[in-house]
Structures are given as C-alpha cells and as structure tokens.
Amino acid sequence: MAWLHARPKPDARSRRGKEEPAGAVLSRLEDLKRKKIDPVMPPNPAPHIIGHLIEMGLTEAAGMGSVPLSWREIAAWQENTCVQLEPWEARLIRNLSKAYLAEGHRAESENCPPPWRAPVTQRELDIEEAQLRALLG
C-alpha cells in the first residue's frame, strides 16, 4: 500500500530532478485511478490484520513527519473497539506499520518497482528484447 500511496519524484541528482519544480505530483494510486486502471495487489493471507492496521491509521503523526504506530496507540485502539489482539497480532501490526513507513520512503523514487511483483522471467526478457529489436531494427 505504501508504494501506491507514494508520490514518486525524479532523482534529485538528475537534470530533471534539478529542473522540475516540486509541484503537486499524483500518488501512484491517484495516477492509476486517473487512467482507470485497477492496481494489482498481492495476496492477503490475513485480511483481518490489515483491516485492523488500516483502522488504526497505518502510522502516527509526529513532530517532523510520520512514525510507526506506538504501543500506546495500539492499546488505545483495543480499548476503544473492545477488540483484544493476541500479542503476536499486536507485534505484527506494529511491524507492518514500520514496514509501511520504510516502503513509503523507498517508494518516493520514481524508479522504485512495486514490492510484490514477481521476479522477471527469462521469457519476459526475451519478449521485451524481441519487441525492441522489431522496433529498432
């Protein structure tokens, strides 16, 4: 989800990164919606955990940006919703919040591939190479 929510930017060291103003860039998800493309998502073996994470808010606001969900926030959510998480579920939610933040920072690069894409096969490489040869001669 973090990859989809990220607003990709060109490398600051590139000419485009130096010349283009830092304007309102669409997130990958907003861009896909604008193009009327449904994003491909990885399988979700624990939808209830992801649902709890989204309900809690994925991350917390802090003085200089976002931080992972705190234990206090997770405990407050449990108390307010009367949902008692197992200890492993609470740890997993906190780790998922950390991973969301890390992926969000990594995904700010416009060249960042989605984290759930399967590795490129030799067949896919051969097809791409054949298409390039046909195009370039």
Rank of each mutant, 00 (worst) to 15 (best):
R13Q: 11
K36E: 11
I50H: 00
L32I: 13
I50G: 00
S27K: 01
G17E: 05
E20Q: 13
A22R: 15
A24F: 04
A24H: 06
R15W: 10
K33A: 14
S27Q: 01
S14W: 01
A46L: 10
V25L: 03
P42C: 08
G51I: 02
I37H: 08
I37V: 15
L32M: 13
R13H: 10
I54V: 15
I37L: 11
I49Q: 01
H52P: 00
S27G: 07
E20A: 12
P39V: 13
N44D: 15
S14C: 07
K36A: 10
S27T: 13
R34V: 03
R16S: 13
K36V: 04
H52L: 05
E19T: 12
I50V: 15
P42D: 08
K18H: 09
H48C: 07
G23Y: 05
L53N: 00
I54Q: 02
P45F: 03
E20M: 14
D38S: 15
L29A: 07
A12L: 10
A12G: 11
N44K: 11
R16G: 09
L29I: 12
H48A: 11
P47W: 05
V25R: 01
P42N: 13
D31E: 13
I54N: 04
K35I: 03
N44V: 14
A24S: 14
E19Q: 11
D31M: 09
A22V: 14
R13L: 09
A46D: 11
M41K: 12
M41I: 14
I49D: 01
S27Y: 00
K36F: 05
R16V: 02
V40S: 12
P39F: 01
H52K: 03
A12M: 09
E19W: 05
I54M: 15
R16L: 12
I49F: 01
A22N: 14
E19G: 04
G23I: 07
P47L: 07
E19R: 14
P45L: 07
S14H: 10
K33Y: 03
G23V: 09
A22F: 05
P43W: 08
G51L: 03
D31Y: 02
K35T: 06
G51D: 08
K35H: 09
R16C: 04
P21H: 13
E30R: 13
I37M: 10
L32D: 00
R16E: 11
R13C: 04
P39T: 14
I37R: 13
I49S: 01
P39C: 11
I49R: 00
D31V: 01
G23D: 15
G17Q: 04
G17D: 05
P42S: 15
P39H: 02
D11R: 09
K35R: 15
A24D: 14
S14Y: 08
S14T: 13
K33N: 10
G51E: 08
G51N: 12
K35P: 00
K35D: 05
H48W: 07
D38V: 13
V40K: 06
D11Q: 06
G51R: 08
D38G: 14
D31N: 08
I37W: 04
N44S: 07
A46N: 07
V40T: 14
R16P: 01
A24K: 05
R34S: 08
